[in-house]
Design a binder for these strands. Structure first.
Lengths: 200, 200, 200, 200
DNA sequence: GATGAATGAGGTTTCATTCAT
DNA sequence: CATGAATGAAACCTCATTCAT
C-alpha cells in the first residue's frame, strides 16, 4: 500500500469536506491509516500536502485544456470547446477546485508562496490559450474583432465566477452550460449575421 | 471618539490588510485603542465584528444598486448602469469586498451562519434585480429574448469573477469596465441589428 | 497571589534542577499553579521567562558589584573585595548562575538574541570595573604596573572558570575563596615587597 | 571512503557550527554522504557520535599535555609550558572544544553518562598534572610554597575560564597568552625575589 | 460601560530511533 | 554492511473568549 498516495487521497477528501484549515493533520493521518509523523516524512508541511494536490490538478487541467481546443476548426468552436471542458472539469475535479477556491484566497494576497506562483502560472497560461483562440477566431471570421487580451480576461472571469458560484455560493445554481455557451457565442459573434453581411 | 466605531474601522483595515484569520482580536483592540475585553462587550464574538462590517456594506450595496438601475429608459441601459455601478463600488468598498471574497468562502459551505444567510439574501436580491432588468429589456426590445433567470446567473457570475480576479488574483488585471459593458451588450443585443430588423 | 512572580520562581527552580531544555512549559505552569496559557500571557516565550530571570540577576549583580568595590581604600583591596563578592554571589544566586552557565552557551554563539546582548553588556561592564580597579591600584601603588585591560580579561576568566567548575564540573571543588584571593594578590602585587622596597 | 570516519568529520563540523542540539542526525548523514540509518549502524545513538569525538580529543589532549610538561627543568617552566600548550590546543582543536563547552554542560549535572565519566577522568588527570608540577616547583625553588591541590584548581579554572571566554563569549577577547603566563608566574613566584632571598 | 488578567483546548512540527529488506 | 521508510512521543505556542472588578 502506497502511504504517500493514501495521504493525498485522504487529504483531498477531508480538505474538500471540512476545509483545509478545519482539518487537522492528525485527522489526515488517521484517515489515511498512517502514523502522524509519516505525513511530515513525505511532505514538508501541511501546505506541502495541498501543494501536491494542486500540482497534479494543474497539470491535468492545462493538458486537457490544450487538448480540448486543439482540432477544432474555428476560433469560436475552440472557445466553445473550452467552455465545455471547463464544465466537465468542474464535475470531475470538484474537490480539488473546491479546496482551492475556498481555502486559498488568503494565501494569494499575502505571502509569496509556491501556491501563488502556481496560480500565477496557471492563470497566465489559461489567458494565453483563450487569447490565442480569439485571435484565431478573428482571423477565420468566426469571432468579432475584439481586444483579444482584455476579452480573454473577461471570459476567464466569467468561467471563474460561475465555478465559484456553483461550488461555493449558498444559492442553488441551475445547469448553465448551454446558456453560457450561447451567451459567449452571442457576445463574440461578428456583429452582422452572415446572411446580411453578404448583402452589404 | 466612539469605541464601537473605532473597532469597526480598525477591524476593516486590519482584516483587509492581513486577513480575517491572521488578525487576532488583540490586534484589533490595540489598533482601535480600546481594551481587549471591550471588543466582546460590544460584539458577541470575532465573527460579530465582521458581520457588522458586512451588514453595513450589504445595505449600502443594495440601496445604491437599486438606484443605479432606476430611471434608465431601457432594460439594456439598466444592465449597463448596473455594471458601471459594480465597477464603482469595487473602488469605494475594496476593503470590505476583499475581506468577504478572501476570508469567508470557508464559512459559506460549512456552518449555517448568519453570514451565509446574509450572502444568500444579497445574492437572491441581486439576481432578482438583474432578472427584472432583463425582462424589461426583452419587453422594450433592447435585449434579446433570453432565459432571464439563467442569464442573470451568468451576468452575476461574470461580475463576481471579475471582481475576484481584480482583488485577489496574483495577476495584474487591466481596466476592463468598457470592455465588459461591450461584451454584455453584444451578448444581450437582439441578434439582428436594428437597421436590418426594420428591413425584415 | 502574584502569578507572574510564581512563574518566575517555579521556572528558576525547575530550570536549575532539570535544565532549561529538559523542563517543559507545561511543567513550569503546573508547578506555579497557573494555567499553561498564563505563561504566554505574561511572557512572550519560554525564552522570555528565562530572560526575565537573567535581567533581574544582572541588575542585582552589577549593582552589588559596584557597591563591593566602592569605599575600599586601595585598588588591590577593591579587587579583593570583588573576588569576595563573587564568591558570595555564587552562594546566593547559584540557581540563576547555573541556568545561565549550563543552558545558554548555545545561544551565545548563534542567534543575535536579547540574551546575547545582555551578556555582552554585563561582560563589558564587569571588565570595565576590574580594569578601573587595576588602574587605581597602579596609581596608589598597591598593584604592579600591568596591562589593565588584558589583566581584567584574565581575572574575569579566572572568576568565570572557577564558577563554572564549582557549579558544573563533575569533580568536587574545595573551598577556594582565600586561595584565589592570595593567588591574585601575589599575581598583582608590585614585584618588590614593601619591606625591601624601602631599602632600595 | 570510510563511512565511519566521514560521519565523525561531518558531525564535528556541523556540531561546531550549528550546535549539537540544533544539528539533526539526518543532516549529519546527508553531509557525510551516507544513509540516515547508517549512523545508527555505526554508533549506538546521537550521543555515541559525539562521544567518539571526545574520546579522541581527550586522548590527544592528555598525551600532548604530558609531553608538554616533560623535559622542562623546573616546576615553574612546566606550568608555563602547560599554559602554552593549552593555548596551542585551543587553536588546533577549537571545534571539539567548542562542542564540548557549548553543548554539554547540560549533561554534566544531570545524568550519569559516559560523558560525565570522561570529563571527570580528564579533569582529575589534568589536576594531578598541574599539582605535580607545582610540587616539583616548590621543591626546586621555582614556585612559592602554595597549597598545590587548591592552586591546581585555580590554574585549571583560569585555563578553562579563558578558553570559555575565547570560544563562547560574545565579547572579542584579545590575545592573552603572554599575559596569562606573566600573571601565573607572578602569582606563583616565591614572594622574595632571589636577589634579596640570598641576602637573608 | 469598560477593563485586562487568566484560561485551556487545539494544532503543527521536529526528530532520534527502529527494523524489514 | 547499509539502507530509508516509518514511527510516535513530546514540545511550544496561539488565541478567542470569559469574568471579576
Amino acid at each position: 500500500m502506497d502511504r504517500k498516495q493514501a495521504i493525498i487521497e485522504s487529504a483531498t477528501r477531508l480538505f474538500a469536506e471540512k476545509g483545509f484549515y478545519s482539518t487537522s493533520t492528525i485527522e489526515v493521518a488517521e484517515t489515511a491509516g498512517v502514523a502522524h509523523g509519516t505525513l511530515f516524512y513525505h511532505y514538508k508541511n501541511k501546505e506541502g500536502i495541498v501543494l501536491e494536490i494542486f500540482r497534479h490538478a494543474k497539470k491535468v487541467y492545462l493538458q486537457e485544456l490544450e487538448i480540448s481546443v486543439a482540432n477544432r476548426p474555428t476560433g469560436m468552436e475552440k472557445i466553445e470547446s473550452m467552455l465545455r471542458f471547463n464544465a466537465a472539469f468542474k464535475r470531475t475535479h470538484s474537490r480539488q477546485l473546491l479546496i482551492f477556491l475556498r481555502d486559498f484566497p488568503e494565501k494569494l494576497t499575502s505571502e509569496e508562496s509556491e501556491l501563488k506562483t502556481m496560480v500565477k502560472e496557471t492563470n497566465a497560461q489559461v489567458l494565453a490559450i483563450i487569447s490565442r483562440c480569439l485571435t484565431e477566431g478573428i482571423e477565420d471570421g468566426s469571432v468579432a474583432p475584439v481586444d483579444t487580451d482584455k476579452t480573454a480576461y473577461i471570459i476567464n472571469g466569467l468561467i471563474f465566477g460561475l465555478l465559484h458560484m456553483d461550488l461555493l455560493s449558498p444559492v442553488q445554481v441551475p445547469e448553465l452550460e448551454a446558456n453560457v455557451i450561447a451567451f459567449c457565442r452571442a457576445a463574440l459573434s461578428p456583429a452582422v449575421p452572415e446572411q446580411y453581411a453578404s448583402s452589404q
